[in-house]
Write a protein that binds this DNA or RNA. Structure first.
Ligand SMILES: [Mn+2]
Ligand SMILES: [Mn+2]
Ligand SMILES: [Mn+2]
Ligand SMILES: [Mn+2]
Lengths: 223, 223
DNA sequence: CAAAAAATTTAGGCTAGGCTAAAATATTTT
DNA sequence: AAAATATTTTAGCCTAGCCTAAATTTTTTG
C-alpha cells in the first residue's frame, strides 16, 4: 500500500471502481470529471497508485486504469461505508433519500470499522441502500447485480425497479414524486424511437408518465 | 477568516479554547503537546491564525495565544459537534462512554449543520455529553460551569459529581467501575496531606475508595 | 490516410501543514 | 546578576495534491 491510504486515494479508488463496473478501464478524463479535478492531476495520482506496493491500480499510459485486488478492497470498504451511512441517516435521523449522498460522501472516509459494524447491526445487515444500490458484505464481496437500465426496455415489457442513481438530488425528488422507487413494478406503455422517451405505468400511481433518457438511463430494473 | 477553515485549523482552535479555559493564554508548547506536533510547527500556524482576516487568535511572540470572538465561534462549533456526537454514539449505537472520544474527534470536522441539528433534536437538545461536559448551545454559547476538581475537596465535604475528563479510556472504565459518574453524590471520608489521596464514599457503592490525584484532578464536582 | 480534434501526459509551480536544527528569548537557579 | 535551562522562533526542507500551459499520443473524420 502507499504508506497511508488518504481520503483522496479512497475517492480515486471508489470512482475507478464505479467506472470499471460500466465499461472496462477507467479513463483519465472520466476520473477527472467525476472528481472535479484537472486531468493532469489525475495522471499524476494514477502513476502513484500504480507504483505503490502493492499496486492499487493497473495503469498503462493512454489506456486508463483498472483496480488490482488490493485497490478493489479499498474501494469496496469505502462503498460499504457510504451505503451503510446512507441507510443509517435515513433510518435513524430521518433524512430524505435525496439528502444523504453528500453527507455520506464525507463521513465514509472517517468512520471506524466499529462504527461500520454497529450501523450494520442496528440496520439488520441490509443488502441495499435507500436508492437500492447493493451494499458490499462485511468481508467485502459485492453481490451480483442483474439489473439493466430502464432505458433498455420496450413497449409492453414489465419490470421491477431495483435501484436509481443517487447523485442528483433533484432527480431523486422527482422520482419519489412519481413513485419510481425500488421494488415497485412498472409496465412500458410506449417507446418513442425518435427521442427514446418511455411512457410507463407505475404500480400504485393513477396516471402514466413519460420519461426521457436523461431519467431512464439513471433507473435500473429487473425484468 | 482564512480562505477556508481546515480540519487542522479547527483542531488548533478547539485545543486553544480548552487551554484558555484553564490558565490564560495557551502556550506554544502546550498546544504542541496536545496536538502531537512539533512546537516549531505550532508557531507557524499561530502566526497564520493571527494574521487571518478576521484574526482567529491574538498572538504576541513568546506569550502564547488567546482566541478572538471569531476564533471562539469556530472552537465552540467544533466542541458542540464533538459533544453531541459523543451523546449520539452512546444513545443510538450503544457505544460505551470510554469508546466515543476518538470517534467523535474525527467526525466533528465532517458533519453538516443539518446533521448537528438532527442529532440535537433526536437527543432532546441535551446540555451535557456522556462525561458530563457542557454542550454549547445551537447559537454557540457555552453554559457556565461552576464545578471544581474533586482534588480540591477535604474531609467531610460532600459534593455531586458533574463531569469527568474523557480522553483516557482506561480511566473512564475505572471510574464507571467504582460508580464515579455524573450526578452521583459523594462524601469525602479522609484527605491525606502527604500524597493528596482522598478516601471517598460514593452513593450507591458498598465500600469506600481511595483515589490519588491522578484521578481526583480529572473529576469535577459541585459542592 | 492525412488532417483535425480529443485525450493524455509532461513540465513547472503553488499551498497547506508538517519536520529538524539552530538561533533567540524567557525563566529559573545558583 | 550571571549562568544554566527551558521555551519559542526562525530558517530551510519536505510531501501530498492540486493547478496551468505546452507537448505528445490517440482517435475521429473528411
Ligand atoms: Mn451515494
Ligand atoms: Mn446510494
Ligand atoms: Mn471527547
Ligand atoms: Mn466528552
Amino acid at each position: 500500500m502507499p504508506e497511508t491510504i488518504t481520503q483522496s486515494i479512497q475517492d480515486y479508488l471508489k470512482h475507478i471502481y464505479e467506472l470499471n463496473e460500466n465499461g472496462g478501464a477507467a479513463s483519465t478524463n472520466d476520473i477527472a470529471t467525476r472528481l472535479n479535478i484537472a486531468p493532469a492531476s489525475v495522471t499524476g495520482m494514477l502513476q502513484k497508485l500504480a507504483s505503490a506496493t502493492p499496486p492499487l491500480v493497473v495503469y498503462k499510459k493512454h489506456q486508463g486504469v483498472t483496480l488490482t485486488k488490493s485497490g478493489e478492497k479499498v474501494a469496496l470498504e469505502v462503498i460499504r461505508h457510504h451505503r451503510l451511512l446512507e441507510s443509517f441517516l435515513v433510518n435513524t435521523l430521518g433524512y430524505a433519500w435525496d439528502e444523504v449522498h453528500n453527507e455520506a460522501d464525507k463521513l465514509e472516509h472517517v468512520i471506524s470499522e466499529d462504527f461500520e459494524a454497529r450501523m450494520a447491526e442496528a440496520l439488520g445487515h441490509p443488502t441495499r441502500d435507500p436508492h437500492g444500490e447493493l451494499i458490499p458484505s462485511a468481508d467485502l464481496v459485492m453481490p451480483a447485480d442483474e439489473s439493466c437500465p430502464l432505458a433498455s426496455l420496450r413497449t409492453d415489457e414489465t419490470a421491477t425497479i431495483r435501484r436509481v442513481s443517487d447523485d442528483d438530488p433533484a432527480l431523486l425528488r422527482h422520482l419519489r414524486e412519481i413513485g419510481v422507487v425500488p421494488e415497485v413494478k412498472i409496465i412500458v406503455k410506449n417507446y418513442s424511437e425518435f427521442d427514446g422517451n418511455l411512457t410507463i405505468k407505475v404500480e400504485g400511481q393513477k396516471s402514466n408518465v413519460v420519461l426521457g433518457t436523461a431519467v431512464t438511463s439513471q433507473v435500473f430494473v429487473d425484468k
